[in-house]
Structures are given as C-alpha cells and as structure tokens.
Amino acid sequence: MELEVRHLRALCAIADTGSLHKAARTLGMSQPSLTTQLRRIENALGAELFSRERTGCRPTPLGRAVLSRARPLVEQMNALVADTRAAASRSSGSPQLRIGATASRVLGGWLRRLRTRLPETGTSLHVDVSARALLRLLSAGQLDVAFVHEVEGFALRVPPGLDQRVLVEREPQFIAMSRDHPAAGRSVVELTDLAADRWMIDPTVDGEWDGVQRVFDAAGLDPPVLRGDYHTATSLIVMGEAVAPCQPTSGPREDMAIRPLRGDPLAVRLLLVSRPGFTEAEGVYADLEAAYRDAAMRAPGYRQWLLRNESPLLAGSGAVA
C-alpha cells in the first residue's frame, strides 16, 4: 500500500479531533471506513500510529513523528488546490464567495441576502458540525469566511492571521422537548425539571458535551445521556424519549416545545471569521446580522427572551414589548 494525500489527511483529522468518530464526520465518511483505512495505513507502516483509549485516540511517539511530516504536505496540497481554484475563478471572470458554517437556522436568510446583494457572485456553502474543522479550512485558504459558534467556557483556537467579528456575544441555548412534557406548559423551564429526562447530545460538535457536562456538574445533576446527531434527536424528542439543547432561533413546531432554561446556563458565542484581506467582510457581516435578526424575530420564544433582556439585537427590528 502506498500512502496518498487522502491517507495523510485522515491521520491529521484523527489527531486534530482526537476521535475516529469525529474525524470521520469531518472527512465525510463513515467511522467503520475510517477505522479500516487507519488499520491499513498502520499495517503498511508496520506499527500503530494511534493508541485507542476510552477518551479517544492519541498519537503514539511514531504517530507524532509521522504527523510532523504529514501536516506540511497536507497544508501544501490544500494551498495548491485553493490557489488553483482561485486562479480558475479569476480567469472565468466570475467572482466566488466560499462560505463555511456550523448548522444554523440563519443560513437560508443569509444566503438569500448575499445572492440579492451580489447577483454576479457565485456562492458555495460548506456546512460542518466542527467549528475547528471550518477554521482549519479557512486558514488553509479553502474558505473566504466562516460563521461558527463557540461553546461558553471552551474557547475556539482561531488560527493566527484570521479576522473575526462577534455577531452575538452570548446566545442562550434553549431546550427542545415533546409537547406533552410536564414542563412544556411553562414559559421558562427549570433545569431540575429535566433531571430525570434522557438528554440527547451530539459529541461531534466541538465543546458541546463539555459545556452540557459543566452545567450538570454545577447543578449537581447526573441525568442519563444519549449520544447521537441532532437530526436523530428530533424524532426521539417528539416521541418523548429525550430532550436536547437547541438554538433559540428554532421555529415553533406543533409536535415540539422549545423553552428557555432559567438563568440561561447553556450559551454560545457566535463569530464570523474571515481570511485576511477579504474585501467583502463588512457586507457579508451586515447580511448575516440582518438575517440573524429576522430569524430571531420569527421565533416567538427567542423574541420574548430578547425583549426581556433588552438585547441590542432588537435595535431597528421594530419589536415592541
């Protein structure tokens, strides 16, 4: 077996995420496929590159040596691809806007505004659950801008040289539950009301589990936890089998209740990060801000939360108490 760039990318992804599952999500492949690929790489080299532990994967001494040589090669290949695509875009005469984002209810409105304001610009969107993965793509020149969230208490490591602006300093995370949940009839839910519920957490979202665990520890709670993606969580929530954190911009649903937690113990910071010299940064940020405000106003629970907290986001929205 000869090592290829895709194999080196896989090794770097495993080392960066510390998990085969997270790395597979980042690479857009299944975990069994990545596990098989790693086994073949290790067999070809004749030694283990990662030690499998309960807390994840850690590079062995040999693995660290391989990674020290693999990373520059991967970065050079990424730069080559980015430069080639940029040159092709320039030669075609059509400007391109490459956007990365973690999942958000705001994306549709943001893209619509960008398309309206920049009708001659081709826009691509790369969505990833990992903010760190998006920032790496941005640093490598494969994206122009990335809209990411940072879980409170677990700061993102923004690569040097990138520009960043804060869209929302502290966005509260609400809780999604079934319509017939005992706490669904309240406008604000106590954390203790959910102590006996199964919580659905996506561990591949950077900082997500750590942030929720910190809140549990502070409240002296230890509820049962299910680990999986939030698309799967929706069906479990509707059936009353789980509750889960959710974005406050989540729209109302007939089969689900979305409520704020008392004291807002769960929160994220929303950032727009752009590559150096990105001339459209101001306009792109303004479009994102407007799209976010629109989404917030369409979510009744969040709109009321913003009014109660006299949020600056309400400026110019026309919202009244």
Rank of each mutant, 00 (worst) to 15 (best):
I14Y: 07
G63S: 07
G109D: 01
R90P: 04
L191K: 08
Q31I: 01
N309C: 08
G161S: 07
A315H: 11
G161C: 01
L236P: 04
R90S: 14
L38I: 09
A296D: 11
P119I: 06
D163P: 01
P300R: 03
V81R: 11
A10Y: 00
T232I: 00
D222C: 07
L313V: 08
L221N: 08
G161P: 08
G185Y: 11
W209Q: 12
P260N: 03
P203M: 09
W305V: 00
R64E: 15
S91R: 13
D202I: 03
N309H: 15
R227L: 12
V129I: 03
V215I: 11
A87Q: 12
W110Q: 06
E42T: 08
H181E: 03
P260A: 09
D83K: 15
A86Y: 00
D202V: 07
A155C: 06
P72F: 09
A267R: 09
T17I: 01
S130V: 02
L111N: 00
E208C: 15
M239C: 07
E254N: 08
A140W: 13
G122R: 10
V151F: 14
R52N: 09
D16Y: 11
Q96G: 04
D193A: 14
I201L: 15
E169R: 15
V215C: 11
I201G: 07
L3A: 09
C57P: 00
D229A: 05
V106N: 13
E171D: 04
T279V: 12
E53Y: 03
A140H: 14
L266W: 13
A290C: 13
D264A: 15
G153H: 10
F216M: 14
V284W: 08
V148N: 05
V129C: 09
V284S: 09
G207D: 05
F174K: 09
F174H: 12
L236G: 03
G108P: 00
T121P: 04
G318S: 10
T204D: 15
G108Q: 00
G100Q: 01
S51D: 14
V127A: 00
A13Y: 05
D180G: 00
Y292K: 06
T116C: 07
T60S: 12
M1C: 04
E152G: 09
V320R: 14
G283W: 00
D287N: 14
A88P: 00
T35Q: 14
T60R: 01
